[in-house]
Write a protein that binds this DNA or RNA. Structure first.
Length: 426
DNA sequence: TCTGGGGTCCTAGGACCC
DNA sequence: TCTGGGGTCCTAGGACCC
């Protein structure tokens, strides 16, 4: 068990209904109204304003199932716009880096702060300032939970969401057991669907009960991660703060189709386009891929008898970031697993065993390879400058009829000059 | 008609070796 | 004829996160 003594105070900063808050930035008229944001393809509900939550709309609900409530209550609906959310996220994180001594960016809308060096007497005013500055500079409301461990700071944050101040500090709280008793077992960070079911079967229904369960029993009936969670509930830090950004180990690009696809050529277009996308991504992070996995599948929600899912992994002879090489192998893999007569719903590729290209030297690098490198560089620059897919391979298709649905896009993007919000002078 | 996408880590079990 | 036991490495699949 790893014990991490230097962390004493951890804050979790979480943006409230982040995607909804981003959409609201440029549309003040939806500020107090129920709003939801849909996943890719307008499939599921992935962000809800508090007003939408109050209507009983659940996280992850398929859109078509919630449609009735949505129409009846005049809920504002948006397709997701990741370019905008990513840009706003970067702004929030920049502020946190500026204000906090140490930060771990945990997800697009969350960050852990190490506040161990901040004295107890100024902690409340410090945290309030963080919250106020983010709101003032970006317009994004946040909640902040403070505790001795990451798991407890998650719980503090969970409670802070309902507080008017938006801030909850559990450090030194004498009634911690009473608080943990009110936290349902499936709301504990690190306890998912399967473990909840198992714990409930064994009479462990809330965070307090998990905290008081023996480590040995947890470890033997589950794994080390679960026992770490229990330790963290006791206030013993076991999950470290990752303050430096490690390079990713894999890169996946996949999408569901707007309409089911049977035709090989259309699948090939999609796979080509996703491969180009992934290749560009790893180049921008100076990574090289050692292998590629291509996968296709039919819908999970239809007739199980006609379900087909398959994948193929191909190793590159030499780790690469070359778009042409990656596309070539992706199509080879697709040919291998494609079966006629199925209505495909989703396809994608995963580049894995990623290496840091700055640390990798190829003994066989040649003049030809250097030429390819500079070709990739100019493609990336052009696409950065003039918009993605300005330069592409003909194989990726021009019309992209298979592209996903985005019926309710706000078409605002603070990261793209041509999609900036405009103000009409009257 | 319509049910997201992108990650990480752990474990069990097989293959292989001595 | 009897057919051991312990170690490592790899991979697929599962569970979790947002």
């Amino acid at each position: 068990m790893s014990y991490i003594p230097h962390i004493k105070k951890i804050a979790l900063v979480d943006c409230n209904s982040f995607y909804v808050s981003c959409e609201r930035l440029f549309k003040p008229h939806i500020l107090k109204k129920p709003v939801v944001v849909l996943s890719n393809n307008d499939g599921c509900i992935i962000s809800r304003s508090s007003e939408a939550k109050a209507l009983g709309i659940k996280m992850g609900d398929p859109y078509f199932k919630a449609k009735e409530i949505i129409i009846k209550n005049n809920v504002h609906v948006f397709s997701s716009n990741y370019s905008l959310y990513g840009d706003i996220s970067r702004r929030v994180m920049r502020i946190l880096k500026y204000l906090a001594p140490e930060i771990e960016i945990y997800s697009i809308d969350e960050a852990f702060l190490n506040l161990s060096s901040i004295k107890d007497n100024i902690l409340p005013s410090f945290v309030k300032k963080v919250r106020d500055v983010i709101l003032q500079w970006t317009g994004i409301p946040t909640s902040i939970g403070i505790a001795n461990t990451k798991t407890l700071s998650k719980i503090a944050n969970h409670i802070a969401k309902k507080e008017k101040s938006g801030i909850v500090n559990l450090i030194g709280n004498q009634n911690i057991d009473q608080i943990l008793e009110k936290i349902k077992i499936n709301d504990v960070w690190g306890v998912g669907k399967q473990m909840s079911k198992f714990y409930l079967k064994n009479g462990i229904c809330n965070a307090k009960q998990l905290k008081n369960t023996s480590n040995n029993w947890i470890k033997s009936s589950s794994n080390v991660l679960s026992s770490r969670t229990a330790m963290e509930l006791r206030g013993i830090p076991c999950v470290n703060l990752e303050t430096y950004q490690t390079k990713r180990k894999s890169c996946c690009v996949s999408r569901s189709f707007g309409k089911k696809v049977e035709n090989f050529q259309i699948l090939a277009e999609a796979i080509t386009s996703y491969s180009l996308n992934a290749a560009e991504k790893i180049r921008s992070e100076s990574l090289l891929a050692k292998s590629i996995t291509i996968f296709i599948r039919t819908s999970l929600f239809q007739n199980k008898k006609i379900f087909y899912s398959n994948s193929k992994t191909i190793d590159f002879p030499i780790a690469t970031d070359n778009s042409i090489e990656i596309v070539k192998n992706a199509l080879k893999g697709l040919k291998f697993i494609f079966k006629k007569g199925y209505k495909y719903q989703k396809t994608g590729i995963i580049l894995s065993e990623l290496l840091d290209s700055e640390k990798t030297h190829n003994l066989f690098s040649s003049v030809k390879e250097n030429k390819i490198k500079s070709l990739m560089k100019s493609i990336d620059y052009t696409n950065y400058r003039y918009g993605r897919s300005t330069l592409s391979l003909a194989n990726a298709g021009i019309n992209k009829k298979w592209n996903m649905r985005r019926k309710y896009s706000s078409k605002i993007d603070t990261a793209d000059f041509y999609c900036l919000p405009t103000i009409k002078a009257i």
